[in-house]
Design a protein around this nucleic acid. Structure first.
Ligand code: FES
Ligand code: FES
Lengths: 140, 140
DNA sequence: CAAAAACTTGACTATTTTGGTCGGGTATAT
DNA sequence: ATATACCCGACCAAAATAGTCAAGTTTTTG
C-alpha cells in the first residue's frame, strides 16, 4: 500500500504555495525550484487541480496559480479527489451486489475493508492544508 | 492509493481458516474453493505467512495449515507485515537524513505523511483477525 | 510591437509493480 | 504405491506509475 508521487507532489506543491501566498500568484517554476519537483510534472498535476477548482490560473508574465479556497478551508481530501486518488481498499465495486470473488454475497472481509476505508478518509477529511504548516518556519 | 490483492487475499484466507479452525488443519484447496482464490496464488501467499510464523504447515494427505497464534491474538498488522505490505506514505527513507526531493532537510509535508502513516498503522495494530468474524454467520 | 514568461493540452514512453502461472519438487497418511 | 498436499524458485503478461515532449495560447513589459 503506497501513496503515489502525484498526490504527494500535489500536497507538497500546494503547501509551498500556501507559504508564499502573500505574492499575487505563485508560478510553477518557483515551486519546481523550491521543492525539487519536475516542472513538466507539476504542469500535469496543476492541470487537474485547476479542472477540479482547487486553484485558479493567471496567465502571462507574472502569472501563476492562486487558491480558490484559502488553505485554512482546503481539505486534503479535496486535493486527493482532484487527482483521482480516492483510497480504495475493497476489492468489489462499492454499490455492486457482486462480491470481490464473483460470488453473490459480500465476502467475509468486506466490512473490514470498508471500515478501513472510512478510517483513512476521515483523516483526510479532517485535515486542512493550513494544518501542515504549523510549527514550520518558512524556508527559502 | 490501493491495497493489493495479496494482502486482501491473505486476510480473506486467514479469516476463512479461522472459521474452519475446528478442523485440525485447513488445506489451501478448501480455502481456494470456498473463497474463489487461485490455489497457486494462495500457495505463494502462504509461503510467506509460514516464513513469518503466522501459520504452521502440516504436510501429507490430511495436511494443511494451522495458526501459530490464535485468531484472537493475531493482529492484522502481523499479516500485512508478513507480506511486506507496510503502509508507506512518505517519499523519503524513514531514517535517512535526506529528504524525498534530495535536499538535506525534511520536506514540508514530511510530518504530515508520517502522521498519516501512524493513523493507518494503528488501525491495523488494534484489529485482531477474530474481530472480522463478529456478526458473521458461517457460510459453507 | 516584439519577446519572454507562464499557463494549456494531448500524446507518448520507459520502468516498475502487480497479479498471477508453471514446473518440478518433497513429505506423509492410507 | 499413490494420492494429497505443502514447497519453492523462476517466469511472464498486463497494468499502473512517473515522467517527458511538442506544440501551442495568453498576457505583461520594454
Ligand atoms: S471486498 Fe467487497 S465483497 Fe470482498
Ligand atoms: S516525505 Fe520525508 S522528506 Fe519529503
Amino acid at each position: 500500500m503506497k501513496l503515489n508521487t502525484k498526490s504527494r507532489y500535489a500536497v507538497m506543491a500546494l503547501a509551498d504555495m500556501a507559504i508564499f501566498s502573500d505574492k499575487k500568484a505563485v508560478s510553477l517554476r518557483d515551486i519546481s525550484l523550491r521543492q525539487g519537483i519536475s516542472l513538466l510534472y507539476l504542469e500535469q498535476i496543476f492541470l487537474r487541480l485547476k479542472k477540479n477548482k482547487i486553484v485558479n490560473s493567471v496567465r502571462g508574465i507574472n502569472g501563476g496559480y492562486t487558491f480558490v479556497k484559502s488553505p485554512k478551508e482546503l481539505k486534503i481530501s479535496d486535493i486527493l479527489l482532484a487527482l483521482d486518488q480516492k483510497v480504495k481498499t475493497i476489492g468489489c465495486k462499492k454499490d455492486s451486489k457482486k462480491s470481490c470473488n464473483g460470488k453473490s454475497t459480500k465476502c467475509i472481509t468486506h466490512n473490514f475493508w470498508d471500515e478501513l476505508d472510512l478510517h483513512i478518509n476521515s483523516f483526510f477529511e479532517n485535515k486542512r492544508l493550513s494544518d501542515l504548516l504549523k510549527n514550520k518556519e518558512v524556508r527559502l
